[in-house]
Design a protein around this nucleic acid. Sequence first.
DNA 1: GGTAACTGGGTTTTT
DNA 2: CCCAGTTACC
Length: 697
Amino acid sequence: MFEPAAVLDGLNEDQRRAATHQSGPLLVLAGAGTGKTRTLVARAAWLRSQGTQAARILLLTFTRRAADDMLARVMPAGASAAERVCGGTFHAVAHQIIRAHAESFSLPPAFSVIDPSDVTDLMDVLRTEHGLVGTQRRAPRAGVCADIYTRCVNTQATVAEVIAGSYPWCADFDGQLGALMRSYVAHKRRHGLVDFDDLLLLWRAALTDPAAGPVLRGMFDAVLVDEYQDVNAVQADIVRLLRPDGQGLTCVGDDAQAIYAFRGADPAHLRSLADDYPDLEVIRLARNYRSRDAVLRLANAIRPQSPGLELALRAERGTGSPPQLVRCHDEATQAREICARVLEAHESGTDLRDQAVLMRAAQHSSVLEVELSARGIPFVKYGGLRFTEAAHVKDFLAAARVVANPADDIAWFRLLRLHDGIGPVHARRFIEALGLADPGLSDPGEAGRGEAGRGEAGPGLAGPRPLDRWEDAVAAAPARSRPAVAATVGALAGAAALDRTADRATAILAALDGPLRDRYPDAGVRIADLQRLVDAAATRPSLHDALVELALDPPVSASDLAGPPRLDEDFLVLSTIHSAKGLEWPVVHLLHLVDGAIPSDMALTSPAGLAEERRLFYVAVTRARDQLYLYAPLRMHHHRAAADDRHSYGQLTRFLDPAALAECEAVDATPPEPVLPRIGPLAATIDAALDSLFGPT
DNA sequence: GGTAACTGGGTTTTT
DNA sequence: CCCAGTTACC
């Protein structure tokens, strides 16, 4: 047990009030860099010093990194199980509960957790059955269908409402889309598939259950929620159901940093906390321990304020120098200017790892990446494509899912298509032959049976086991593919018979060796990648756990799997603004401050979209501790234009209005000197040379 | 005739 | 890397 005094050491007055708040509902409105994590950690420690058992404190976050970070700080080194605070992301905690009680949720123990790309694949298959495929080019694509689905769930809105609000161009298809969503849901049930949204829905459903609800609620005395501005409707419900009267509830957040509306989050849930809990106490943390005053002046100039939750950050770390706005000729100049400033800071003693380059979209750094590589500046990139999105990794995960849950037809589909000569049609026939076929629309008798028994296993979950009859199914493959498919599937069936996770993972990779070598010219590198995946999976208690962990917390790169990075290595960080949330660096370089990038032109169609872009800019600015550089490439490539007019001038981001600009120091980058003078008509010279080789044309 | 493979153009943000 | 359109194969 801790001494309260030690627990509260070094906290300021407001932080201390938040940490020692009694049991009523509490909202800590914590601006960027105001010691939010520290306060939350202190609150958990204080609760324990007051007698609350660690295991009865639940800490909910949005990213695995935030969860790990906080849990590590809450728990003394070498804590026993009883000393352990419960916590994790909403999704991970939901999964733990569901996994532990799969049968109460009417789920087969071998259920698969599918990620958004699997959802898209599945939508693609189902789409053909709902008249969304054909010659009409305007039909919503699989990815859009998946987006509409998840948005319906996360904002608790109907298909019609979501289409009207966010996808007006799909209005002609709302009937088909509604039917598609229903068959998507039915399909998941039949095949033991659980998507990310289901994890939250299942948890919420359990909390509303008259028998299970009180048990789940009673497990915790205190619930601490980080980044509350990023909850969606289902998560807000879960929090309310966990603490119906607000006793023991602490929410920490800042609605000016809400940047996840695109996935259904809504800062309105934070703003309405006071309505949900009339006795809510609001404590503001405004003393900023991160940034210099010069940076905060810009941050305060661009911070959107919402009535009742106003906040202005106050600097605790001295004046500093103003953010520098570097106006660049074009993107290449921007890349050069960034490299120059990165190296300059490096030479004056700032490690590369203490600098970050932040961007709106992962793609915005492509020119810079070339420049960094050319100059030999090492970097790591966060955000954008992840390791688990690489084709060979998906292939491996599909094979592993077939082993873990043989009813997972989406995994089968991908696995089979990895083989030469097998496309969508043969893959589907093979799956039918396994006994996994969906009772399609054409077969109402079958469909009726499926709907009747809710919770009753689908074709692959009860009946004959799909992996037991793979030998017959091979006949469905075209003759020339049969040997390869038989070898792969036979080897996977062998893997399924093994017990230890390590052996299973190794056998799965061995099963894929042939197909991967046939498919990818660089198979050697890819297989080496997968070997690390196998090693990482081997440490998990089961293949299922390894797969869920990879889905919910995908490693950024293969090297991420190899354990903590070596301390002697120094890398510049490149990150999307979204992935940079919650982090800070002494020096921050912010790219592409032009309208169309920040704010993104995709977000300009609605005032809400624009407001979110402004918050994103605010998040980016508040990552900097000492020095902030803003870069605006004002001359951009035009995609379709005459050869001699391929450029146009972009506009500096609208968020840098006169008041904000007054807090910056603007400089113009020198345009590059042309390396070569213009050379005459080269084509004629080349033609003459070629004519001398081949004769005149 | 139906399938699979190839080619070329385009890409917001993520649990 | 993904998708659509097109060509080449069984």
